[in-house]
Design a protein around this nucleic acid. Structure first.
Lengths: 170, 170
DNA sequence: GCTTGAAAATGAACATTGTTCAAGAAGAAT
DNA sequence: ATTCTTCTTGAACAATGTTCATTTTCAAGC
């Protein structure tokens, strides 16, 4: 993304882009805000009935979003601020909210565990899924063949939940 | 990293940097080759005695390397080639080799499973660990508090192995 | 309708950084 | 010493983020 391209695409001048977004970081961050909102909306659309099914739905929704918007997700997770400025709190909070969507179903599946512990477990699981998907979707250094990614991801979730003592057949 | 900085640091001219590395990508890729070699060396240094202990050692070694060389790892995994040129095969192969180091201990722990299946499992596990570490080490969007990362990572490995039917107490 | 002052828009000019290449320096061969 | 090859240099160029004096817009007041 280039400032001049944005200016041309919106039919205004370069200066106007700067009036609107401040600087290049501001432009990127605006896009990233929309990205995390769209991702959150998609994750929230996963039905909340069966918690196990919900967790699989969340992982699949994340995979779907990552497949369709690989560049946007990369921008969200890989963009560095200029001059070591701090990352905006509001985006951080929004990402945390998205992460937290995994928390509820996990709590239902692990009613006896310390909620703080479950919170950490859900973040670990989210991070793991994120790693599998982001590496898996890179054409290069294919960790897992993309066409198999969907079923492998489901297998991973099942395996990890089994490790937590949760079995599908209860 | 800037071409002019490299030129000044090595005491030669800008043109000489281009004679040596071709272009900016070539410069980055040279660094990335050293990075993956250093990472592989570190992973290979993990003793191979007990396969379960080895897996934990690999995860911990990865965490250690990522902690000490966060920028190098980011360059390795996040750098995009200019003009959509293909990613160099040799680096891809080296990364795959590093990934494969998880394969051997997993095969020993899962002697009855199809080796191809275990190969995929090990890649999934590597990707998951990569995701946990790379998100965990970002100051921003802290998925898991860095100071707890080490023990949480070990817990994750244990949980996942448990899900694969492997228990510590055999 | 004209004046005026604030607000917004503009794009030329600047700074940084990757890239090229003609000119020069260094060295080897005869 | 001459010539040829190879390497080195850094000025100049291209792309792109950034600034800011100037211009335009427009609403308020008369």
């Amino acid at each position: 993304m280039k400032v001049r391209d944005v200016a041309e695409a919106t039919g205004c001048s370069i200066g106007s882009v700067y009036n609107e977004f401040g600087d290049f970081d501001g432009l990127i961050l605006t896009v990233n805000r929309e990205t995390v909102q769209a991702l959150t909306a998609r994750l929230k659309a996963v039905p909340a009935g069966d918690p196990l099914r919900q967790l699989h739905g969340l992982a699949e929704a994340y995979l779907g979003f990552a497949t369709e918007h690989a560049n946007l997700l990369r921008s969200l997770f890989e963009h560095r601020m200029e001059d070591d400025r701090p990352f905006p709190e509001d985006i951080l909070a929004m990402v945390m909210d998205a992460f937290a969507l995994m928390h509820a179903p996990l709590v239902r599946l692990l009613p006896d565990r310390d909620p703080d512990d479950v919170a950490l477990l859900s973040r670990m699981m989210f991070s793991a899924v994120h790693g599998i998907i982001s590496l898996g979707l890179e054409e290069r250094m294919v960790a897992v063949p993309p066409e198999k990614l969907r079923e492998r991801l489901a297998q991973f979730v099942d395996t990890h939940l089994a490790g937590l003592g949760i079995t599908r057949d209860v």
